[in-house]
Structures are given as C-alpha cells and as structure tokens.
Design a protein around this nucleic acid. Structure first.
Length: 879
RNA sequence: GGGCGAAUAGCUCAGUUGGUUCAGAGCACUUGGUUUACACCCAAGGGGUCGGGGGUUCGAAUCCCUCUUCGCCCA
C-alpha cells in the first residue's frame, strides 16, 4: 500500500474514534476479569472544555487505556454535575435577558426553564472530550440530578438525619446577597480590598464623656448591641459599667469587657454587632446581647435602617458616613486594607448573616477518612504526598458542613413542615412517608398531605457529588448490586487540588460511611494550568487557549503529549504551545519511521547482516530496560516521566539508532528476518505509546497489517516485561555510541563529508568487544576498523583508555592543536586522580566508608591512571 | 495571624536511605549539515558556588540551625 509521507491528524482521529465507538471497546460490563475503574470528576453540565479539563482527562485516558492494554476490564464512567449555584446563576441571567424575573416564576416554571437550558447546553463538554480521545464508557453517562442519582441523595440525607448527624441550626453563614443564597466557606474567596477605617464617637449615657471606636462598616452601627473594651486596658477603666448611645438611632447599649479586644487595633475599643460579624456573634452569645439584623436578603437595609431603609449597603456606607460627619460623630477616616470575602460564583461581597440552615456534623464522620489517608497502611494514597499535610490540617479542624442552599436548582431538602414551631417538621424520602411520620409525631390522624410544606432549600451540589463513586453504580439505592460490588472501590481518581476538600475528602468520608471502604485507592492531584507568566488561565484574562483549536492545530495526540510532557503530579503546568509542537513532532517522527519501513523492499534471498542482528539484539534489551523504567514511573504516577522515557525510546533509540543501523542502502532491499523483527519491535513501540497517542498508533497499527475488530490496538496485549538477565549489551552499545560521536566530531572539525569513507584505527587497551564494529562502520561510513598496537598518524580521540585514530591528509593535521587538546584532557584527568587519591589516602574515609564506596573509588583511580598513561603516550609521540 | 511547601542550567523540572545513575533531563541557545524516512530533521557544543550564611560528617544539592525570597491552604 502507498503510504502518505505526511500525517494528517484531524481526518484520522475522527475515523478511529468512530471505529472505537462502533466496536464498543469503551464499554465495560461485569465479567471475570480484574476491574479497573475511574469515575470522572463531573464537569459542570453547562461548562465548556478548558485546559484544566484537557490535562485532567488526558491523564485519566492514559490510565484507562493502559489498563485496557494490560487486559483489565477498564471502566471510565463519565458524567456531569448540576452545579447548583453556577447553573442557576446562568439560567437567571438568561431569563433576565428575556425580560423574565426569577421571582415572578413558580419553582416548577423555573425548573422547566433550567432543564430546557441543561438539555440545550448540557453535555457539550462531553462531546468535546471525545475530540480529545477520551475513551469513556458513554453508555454509563450520568448526571447528578438524574432521578436515580437524586433518589440516592435524598436517601442519604434521610439516613444521616435519622442517625442524628443532620441538624437545623441558626448560624452565621456566608450569604451571597446577589444569588440570595448561602455559600460554604470553600466557595468564598478572600480578596484584599482598599477600604476606610472610620473613627466614630459614641456618647456615654449620663455624662459628657464620649468613646471613640473604629469600624470598617459604619452602616452596621444601626445593628450595634454593645461596646466592648479590654478589661486590662487602663485607658477605658472609667467606662466600666456605663452605657453608650448609638448615634443616629439613639439606642442605649451596654459597655462590656472582654479580653478578645485587641488593644493595639484602632482605638482599642470595639463596637459589637452580633448579627453581622462572626466574632461579634461569639461575643454576643457570651454576653447575652441582643441580635439586630439590619439587612434584607439582598443586603439592602430593612426597617432597622431608619431612613436608609431599602438602600443598598454600599450606598448607605457612603451616605451614613456623610451624615455622621455632618452631625459631628465622625472623628476621622483612615485608609485601611482588609480582606473581603467574595462569592466565587457571583463575585458579590459576602455578608455574614444569621439564618436557619441545615448542617451535617462532620467530626465523627471524618475520623475514618483521616485514618484512611493518613493511617499507616495508606488505604487511600494521595499523589504527590505533600498534600497529606494539607489534608490532615483540614480534616483535623473540620467544621460542620452547611448543606442547605437557598436555590431551586438541585435536590430539594426532604424536610416537611406541618406547623410554625421550630421543631414542627419531619424528614422523609417522600411526602407520603412524611405524612405518616407527621401523623405519628403530632398524634393528629387528620393531617393531610396538603398540610405539609416542604423546605424550600436545596442541597449543596457537593452533597450529591460526594456520593458519585457509589451512586453511578447505584450503590446507595441497591447496596449489594452486582455492579457496585464489582467496580467499587474504584482505582484511581484524577482531579485538581483545589477541590481536595470540596470533593475528594468528602467522597472518602461518604465511602467509609456507606460502603465501609475507600472510594478509590489512589488520588492523582494535578496542578493548575497556568500561562507562561504563571498567571492562572481565566476567561477574564483571555489567556486560555481555545482547547478545540489546539486540537485542530496539533492533533489530539500532539496536545495530549504536550500537556503531559511538563506536568509532574501536583506541580502547576506552565502551558506553552511549543509543548504541543513537541507532541506533534513525536507524532511526525513515528509516522515518518513508519513511512520509511513502508518504502522497503523485502527480500527473502539475502542474509541478515551482522550490524542488523546486533542492533536488534541491543534494542530488544533496551526496550525491556525502558519498559521496566516506565513501569516504575507509572507506579509512582509520574506520567511526565513515562512519556519522556517513551519519547527518548522512540526518538533516540528506535529512530536514531536502530533504524539507522538496519536501514538498507538506497534502493537496496532489506532482508526478511530484519524486516520482520523491526516490524515486531515497531508494534511493541506502538503499544507502549498508545495510551498517550491513541490515534496515530491505531492508524499505523492498522496499516502495518490487516486487522480484525478483535485485533485492534486499543485492546491489544501490552508487551511482556521480562527481567533482563544480562544488560551488558546496553553498556557495550553506549561505548559504541561514544566512539561514533567521537568520529562525528572529527568529521565536523576536519570537514570530512559523510559520503567520504574513512578508516578507523583502534588501540584496544580496554579490550572492548568487537561485536559492534559492523554497526560503527555503518553509522560513521568507515571502510575498515583496524586494530593496532601503536599510535597512527591522524586525528584522534579517546574513549576511556582506548585510543581511536582517523588518518587524514597531513596538511590538515594541526599538531599544536592536538597537543593542546590532549594536554587539557590530561590536566583534567590528573586533577580528578588527585582528588580520588586524596580521598583514598584519608584513613578515616577508608575506615568509615562502606566497602563498596571504597572499591568504586579504587576503580576510579585505576581508570584514571590508565587514561593518563595513554594520554602521556600520545603526547610523547606528537611532541 | 496560624499551618504547609518551595528555591538546582536562560525556562520547566528530576535528583529516593548522605558516597558512580551526582551535578542530570527536556526545551531554549550556539555551530555545522540535506546523509534518499523526517528541516516538524540530523549532528556536535556551550551553560549551574544546587537562594545566602553557619553547623554535623571522612564525605552534604541531600541532615540540622538561621536569614532572604516566593507559592498554597486556613482564619
């Protein structure tokens, strides 16, 4: 068959993806083989592929494809996450564009819009993953709000409630006034903001005294319920037991004492606003203070805001400062930088707010998950290990998880209220069951379903994704089903360290709680993808390349290799398109090597030449050695080292040395034995490379010979890894490459064209094998390798204590230069010898160092001495 | 403010229990070359006081102390 000298990625990639799909290679079913399972970190259902996804999913695909080649039953479960806040925000924004206000819709109407949106945009990202070559079992695609997935979530909620682990609490939460919902601590991003520190004067009841406090939020004075001083602070002793008057609203508040107050900060005197600050809430509880909430849910002021009622907090901040100034309460304003919490999704400034929320008690649940990761047997292993410390710190200081969100898009909390009392509710999986429970609890048999009102809140998105590895196999609803028993626990999880706590830790927790086992054995934490200037890739900076365009330009294979070449686990990846170029370059190299073999005319008539025989023998050993190295890298999840080893194997060893050694002369046929062996080697190379470059390897595999569907590369058998009994051939070959390099250098220095054959003379002091002479002759175009006892006139070089001579015409020999070169080499070697001998003459070294270390030093000494002797002999003959 | 981690070639990083895998890789750079697979190529080469200082040791990139700089997480 005629092979194109150029490789066309985009055409070939879609061809093979279709072929793989058609033959159902990605699909997995329970069978007797060993399972290998990965669940995808479900991307947001409305998301589009970005560089982080590319990295992440390439790694997963490499692991899955490798497992498939190793004969395991590989199952990669794909899916998407409903991403409550992010998606709801997008739907609200879209409705707004259409002139529809969310608040004018019923819950059902809104959800209809949301599902419409999801059906339209959801899953785009999964289609994009296919372009990357992701070999997911698409028949298993899941969505965190599928009916069965939601059922599992509700079941778990009810179960945890019944275990007493879920409770309702009036707590200070992070309130996003824009999305009008609670955020978990992890969804709050703290930013440094330039603000003001306002110094305000409060009058003291029954005296002319005043007290000055400093605050960054003057609008909250309307919610003040105390002034607090440090009892040790002598400046304020005279205020003890007195009362102050809040400016503008003229409320009397107590002056309390607490050592919490930092005497250094501001005036050393603090206003206490329990409704609007976490620390103040603690103080308020301790001192039994009134709680005055001055905000509406959109952070505009309510009736406690007096004449500011209805105005936004930031507007009020400016206006109230002005009013306070006019009325003489404002002493001064200082510039002040403080950290402000903002919403990860809406960017709105977070308002600490007291409200009724649902919480999950974490302390006991976390214990097995701490032991699982940090215990001695490392039941769950984190790669790289440095994340274990971070994990420990978080898990040991874990706080209860606020699982309710004031949204509609998500699983509605299955709590049903039958009255107005705080405890007038029941928790059940369905309304029917709830009614039964409510009847029991109230002893009111006449209670109707219509009397029950379900909690309006939904559950935090992570409350569904923390069950992901179990729920995708229906392991919550049917805990003993065949699939969960087979595929769970899964093997590897690949994700970013930014969701170590959001997601990974919680899956570990739920795994131990519901299956009493780890959810996965290994967690590979990738780094973040950054640009060359180390900036995070983001839409707003516009520094994120279009993933699909990259694939178009470099091919999926090229992008995959480019991404992995520089991404050691846990290290940030500084993305540079040049890396994709390198990836594409490897593809071209492989293709061109294949093209070369396709040009060969094979003859059964000729014998295998010596140089081919020995080179193939060497490569086979080298391949085994590399396979072992690769295995070691895989076991440590060092995928960038794996691909680098493969890169060197194919680029240098296979193309650079082996093919050059066996390549027949122009228009000469190749012997059949060599051809067959090279093709077999090529096939092994393709298998090793397949997980990284699935498309081009399959293409070549199928072109090498006609294959049935059962013989496709994607399901081929990975090369066997055998222990190398004798690796001396590798060292001998390395010696040969040094000789070859030496001759190439001479050719370059003396301007000898490659087509002009040279003669080579050797003084074989090392007693080095002659096995590779045929290879050397071929690769340097030497007509003869002559073994001699004495120096020969011409250019020379040395490998260890062996001397090599290439006779050249007398006028191109520069004796002075030769002398200089050899003298330099001699000086270096003598210096080296000196340092070795110094060591060896140190009695303490000889007595204390291990025998082997001393032995190697002695060997160094002997080698150096031998070399010095040859160098001196050379000098003598020259001079 | 608390915790964790990092600093090695121009860049990105390896370097495991102190000693032949100890100063390495890839890229970039310089020089030369079409040699009938590949210029998306090949060959040869230059380049580092292992962040600074101190200590332990026969021996330190590696262990300890200290300083400097940077990153991440949490409050």
């Amino acid at each position: 068959m005629k092979i194109s000298p150029k490789y066309n990625a985009s055409e070939i990639e879609s061809k093979w993806y279709d072929y793989w799909m058609k033959n159902n290679y990605f699909h997995s079913e329970v069978d007797e083989r060993e399972p290998y399972t990965i669940v995808i970190p479900p991307p947001n259902v409305t998301g589009v592929l970005h560089m982080g996804h590319m990295l992440n999913n390439t790694i997963q695909d490499v692991l899955i494809r490798r497992a498939r080649l190793l004969g395991k039953n590989a199952c990669w479960v794909p899916g998407t996450d409903h991403a409550s806040i992010a998606t709801e925000a997008k739907v609200v924004a879209k409705l707004k564009e259409e002139g529809i206000n969310k608040n004018d819709l019923t819950r059902e109407e809104f959800l209809n819009h949301a599902f419409e949106w999801k059906d339209k945009y959801g899953g785009i990202i999964l289609e994009q993953l296919k372009k990357l070559g992701a070999s997911c079992d698409w028949e298993r695609t899941k969505f965190t709000m599928d009916d069965d997935m939601s059922e599992a979530v509700i079941k778990v909620f009810v179960d945890l409630y019944n275990k007493g682990l879920i409770y309702r609490g009036f707590r200070m939460v992070n309130w996003d006034p824009e999305a009008k919902t609670t955020l978990s601590d992890e969804e709050v991003i703290y930013e440094e903001r330039q603000g003001n520190l306002y110094y305000l004067q409060y009058d003291i009841v029954g005296s002319d005294e005043k007290v000055t406090i400093a605050t960054t939020r003057p609008e909250t004075i309307l919610g003040d319920s105390a002034i607090c001083i440090n009892p040790e602070d002598e400046r304020f002793t005279h205020l003890k037991g007195k009362k102050a008057i809040v400016p503008l609203c003229n409320r009397e508040i107590p002056i309390i004492e607490d050592s919490y107050v930092d005497v250094e900060f501001g005036t050393g005197c603090l206003k206490v606003t329990p409704a609007h600050d976490e620390n103040d809430k603690v103080l308020g509880d301790k001192h039994n203070l009134e709680v005055i909430d001055i905000f509406n849910e959109d952070a505009s002021l309510n009736s406690f805001g007096l004449h500011y009622e209805g105005k936004d907090r930031f507007v009020v901040r400016k206006e109230i400062a002005k009013e306070l100034e006019e009325k003489g309460y404002l002493v001064k304003v200082e510039q002040h930088t403080n950290k402000v919490g903002t919403s990860e999704r809406t960017k709105a400034v977070i308002e600490p707010r007291l409200s009724d929320q649902w919480f999950l008690k974490m302390e006991d649940l976390a214990k097995p998950a701490i032991e699982g990761v940090l215990g001695e047997d490392r039941d769950v292993k984190l790669y790289p290990r440095k994340f274990e410390n971070t994990y420990r710190h978080w898990m040991e200081n874990i706080r209860d998880w606020n699982i309710s969100r004031q949204l509609w898009w998500g699983q509605q909390i299955p709590a049903f209220y039958y009255g107005d009392g705080k405890e007038d509710f029941v928790v059940a999986e369905t309304k029917e069951k709830a009614l039964e429970l409510a009847k029991e609890k109230t002893s009111n048999a006449n209670l109707q379903a219509s009397d029950l009102r379900q909690d309006a809140d939904v559950l935090d998105t992570w409350f569904s994704s923390w069950l992901w590895p179990m729920s995708v196999f229906d392991g919550i609803r049917n805990p003993e089903n065949e699939e969960i028993n087979y595929y769970y626990p899964t093997n590897d999880l690949v994700t970013g360290p930014d969701i170590l706590f959001f997601w990974v830790a919680r899956m570990i927790i739920s795994g131990y709680e519901y299956k009493d086992t780890r959810p996965f054995e290994n967690v590979y934490l990738t780094g973040l993808v950054r640009d060359k200037q180390r900036r995070k890739m983001s839409k707003s900076l516009g520094n994120s390349p279009d993933a699909l365009k990259l694939i178009e330009e470099y091919g999926a294979d090229g992008v995959r290799v480019g991404l992995l070449l520089s991404s050691a686990a846990g290290n940030d990846l500084l993305f540079d398109e040049a890396l994709c170029q390198q990836g594409k370059g490897l593809g071209n190299k492989v293709w061109s090597a294949f093209y070369l073999t396709s040009l060969w005319e094979v003859s059964g008539e000729i014998e295998q030449p010596e140089h081919s025989k020995i080179a193939i023998e060497w490569y086979k050993t080298k391949l085994q050695k590399t396979l072992a190295e690769i295995e070691d890298h895989y076991s440590k999840y060092r995928l960038s080292d794996v691909i680098m080893s493969i890169y060197k194997l194919i680029n240098d060893d296979f193309c650079g040395w082996l093919l050059e050694a066996v390549k027949p002369a122009y228009q000469q046929p190749i012997d059949k034995k060599t051809y067959d062996e090279v093709i077999a080697i090529f096939e092994d190379n393709l298998k090793v490379l397949h997980p990284f470059m699935p498309f081009i390897t399959e293409e070549i595999w199928q072109l090498i010979s006609e294959r049935t569907a059962e013989e496709a590369l994607i399901i081929a058998k990975y090369p066997e890894i055998n222990e190398i009994k004798d690796s001396s051939i590798i060292e001998e070959f390395d010696f040969a490459t040094s000789i070859i390099s030496g001759i190439r250098t001479i050719r370059k220095e003396k301007n000898i064209a490659f087509k002009d054959a040279i003669e080579l003379y050797v003084v074989n002091n090392e007693n080095y094998t002659k096995s590779f002479d045929s290879v050397i002759k071929k690769l340097v175009n030497a007509s003869e390798v002559n073994y001699v006892q004495e120096k020969v006139d011409g250019a020379s070089f040395r490998v260890k204590s062996n001397e090599y001579f290439v006779p050249i015409s007398a006028d191109s020999i520069n004796v002075e230069e030769e002398i200089k070169k050899i003298t330099e080499e001699l000086n270096y070697t003598e210096g080296f010898l000196k340092s070795v001998q110094k060591k060896l003459s140190n009695e303490r070294f000889v007595n204390n160092a291990p025998e082997q270390v001393v032995a190697t030093e002695k060997k160094k000494e002997a080698d150096a001495l031998a070399k010095i002797e040859t160098l001196k002999a050379s000098l003598a003959s020259l001079g």
